[in-house]
Design a protein around this nucleic acid. Structure first.
Lengths: 368, 368
DNA sequence: CTGAAAGCGCTTACAG
DNA sequence: CTGAAAGCGCTTACAG
């Protein structure tokens, strides 16, 4: 299918520009004096040769003209005929979340490479919107869905399975469904190892939303590892929260109120919550990286740019997105697929390192 | 068209769930013993009554069954027949830029309200990718384009006009084409007024990319206003730069090296550059908000959350996106449209206020 | 090797 | 008020 698109580029650009009229198979056929089905057959046989679809001579004439006229098949017509749209639906909590935005970039890239286009919609983590957006996507006849906002124990995934809608999860996992995610348990473990080895013994976790596997797994990875290392984490030291700065600020307040002795380190399951925590600590006169360590998760672009650079677990967001597309492709091909967990890396910075060399890691850029 | 979608929601959900088979017009017609064209006509007449399309009784039977079966028309077929896909293409520099992500949320919302779905692609501000993505969108037969990455003096817009592709710009403007943007000149003026009234007389501008109207207009608004107020800005005090933190850091270095006396205030045309500037200043021992003031632009979510909260010009990003859709809709309806500039507001915070009350403004949230 | 036909699901004049 | 036909642009068996 890609060979058609090329027609609109490069040297032929001027010619395709001049024609604002769209050229159809029939146009090509008429101009060459052959039947439209012949043109179609040739354009669908391998790029070189005719693969038994036509004589080499005819094939060449057809292909030349298609290129010259900037022919690109109408996806509506193709879709109607073949029953496949080459459209993928992507649902995320919100695209203004850097993490999802970058995963989506990976999705878009990988999808384009496979000849798919992608829709993306925001659900704001609202179950009703999740259903509505899903239905809008299906009404558009997408071939499959990539779901980035799955809630643990949501009925939606079961319903989709019943409806036989092909889908995979990205970013968040749910047991029983294929997903492409960061190895969040490992991420939590890395933080535990780091803080333990820095000598911390009293720590607390800003745990995020209970419905998100990212929050649950990162927290579990941290807590289990901490106990394995011999540490203790009382119940009041794990505070579920919203994912944003306000959530981090609030959770920090709760922790400082309820935990005695006061923790010397905080693990926030994402960077925004960590930044909120830093603000709350600062406004109480606690110096981050001195009185108290803070570690975030995702290593979003700003972590390394903060005045006190934030230690954070870097997850391979772009690759996670790309992997999701590959998984979905295999699902569409009828294969059975297993979930994929990509490895994270801990980036230690000033916010949690008294002695370490700082790892300066540049982040994505802004460009409005 | 919206009435069809409703069929998949609410009380009928269970029934539409049970059928993973897609129901067609013909199915409905057969079940009711009428002709498909009759069904089509009824479903296209106003929601209540039959508007002369059919008897009220038939109309009711048809609509009831459509709802019951969860009928939703195949957009491929409709598009093929009517020549309009109700698809909009959106091109942005990168979705991981918060500013564009939020504008896109506005676009998606407003488009959905009008019955359109949107594709979005990243061009990374690369002219070649801009053309390629545009062509991919057109190959998908979008009804129109919303361009968020326009470069001043790029040939692409002219080519699209020649090709009679309906489009509007968003985020960045280019003279001669309809756009929905922030009033960036006004934004620059607001910053000039603020810094002037704070008593600054030696200032510098981190001006952004020359190809982007946002950068050019914000800079011009600031510089012109500054001179109008009686201030001076030597050429070396305006440094063009990349939009990211690295760009801001670099530009700050240049400014500190070349400008004497050292400026007491820096205006960066976007928040990321401002944050880079803050880092560069800090690493030279200059305290932001004390030795030197910094003001950014866009008021992205982190501006208010930084340890030293960043003054920033807040632009109505969501509304800008929504406005772009409305403009494009009117273009598609054959109307002539004028560009729209939405008003920004300056949020003064610690980074530039010695005496002001701080305006705490919460930002968007993260939710992975 | 190529043509001709059927049909994907819809809409829209045109009859009656 | 309703039916029947044509056709949007493609693909895919089926002939020959």
């Amino acid at each position: 299918m890609m060979q058609f698109l090329e027609c609109r580029q490069g040297n032929e650009l001027n010619e395709s520009l001049s024609g604002s009229v769209t050229v159809t198979l029939k146009d090509l056929a008429k101009e060459l004096g052959v039947h439209p089905s012949t043109v179609s057959r040739i354009l669908h046989s391998g790029t070189e040769g005719a693969r038994g679809a036509a004589s080499v001579a005819t094939a060449e004439r057809v292909r030349d003209l298609a290129r010259k006229r900037g022919y690109s098949p109408d996806p509506q017509a193709t879709g109607l005929r073949t029953g496949r749209t080459h459209l993928l639906g992507v649902i995320v909590p919100r695209l203004s979340d850097l993490v999802l935005a970058i995963m989506y970039e990976g999705i878009e890239e990988a999808a384009a490479e496979l000849g798919y286009s992608t829709f993306v919609m925001n659900s704001r983590d609202n179950p009703e919107e999740q259903r509505r957006k899903t239905d809008t996507m299906l009404a558009r006849r997408v071939d499959g869905l990539i779901i980035g906002d799955a809630h643990l124990n949501s009925g939606l995934l079961r319903d989709l399975t019943v409806r036989k809608v092909p889908f995979v999860l990205v970013n968040r996992s749910v047991p029983g469904y294929p997903s492409a995610t960061c190895d969040d348990v490992l991420g939590g473990q890395l933080v535990a190892d780091h803080l333990w080895s820095e000598g911390h013994r009293d720590v607390a976790v800003i745990a995020g939303e209970r419905y998100a596997s990212t929050a649950v797994d990162r927290t579990a990875g941290f807590v289990d590892r901490w106990r394995f290392l011999g540490g203790q984490i009382p119940p009041e030291a794990v505070v579920w929260s919203h994912f944003d700065t306000a959530g981090g600020r609030e959770a920090t307040g709760t922790i400082l109120t309820n935990c005695t002795p006061r923790p010397t380190a905080l693990f926030a399951v994402n960077d925004f919550a960590a930044i909120g925590a830093m603000g709350a600590l600062r406004s109480r006169g606690l110096s981050v990286g001195h009185h108290i360590a803070v570690v975030g998760f995702n290593d979003t672009s700003l972590a390394s740019e903060l005045p006190i650079p934030l230690s954070s677990v870097r997850s391979p967001m772009l690759d996670i997105g790309r992997t999701a597309v590959q998984l979905l492709k295999r699902v569409l091909d009828g294969e059975h697929v297993e979930s994929v967990k990509l490895k994270p890396v801990l980036c230690v910075r000033e916010s949690s390192a008294w002695t370490e060399t700082l790892a300066a890691v540049p982040g994505p850029s802004e460009s409005d």
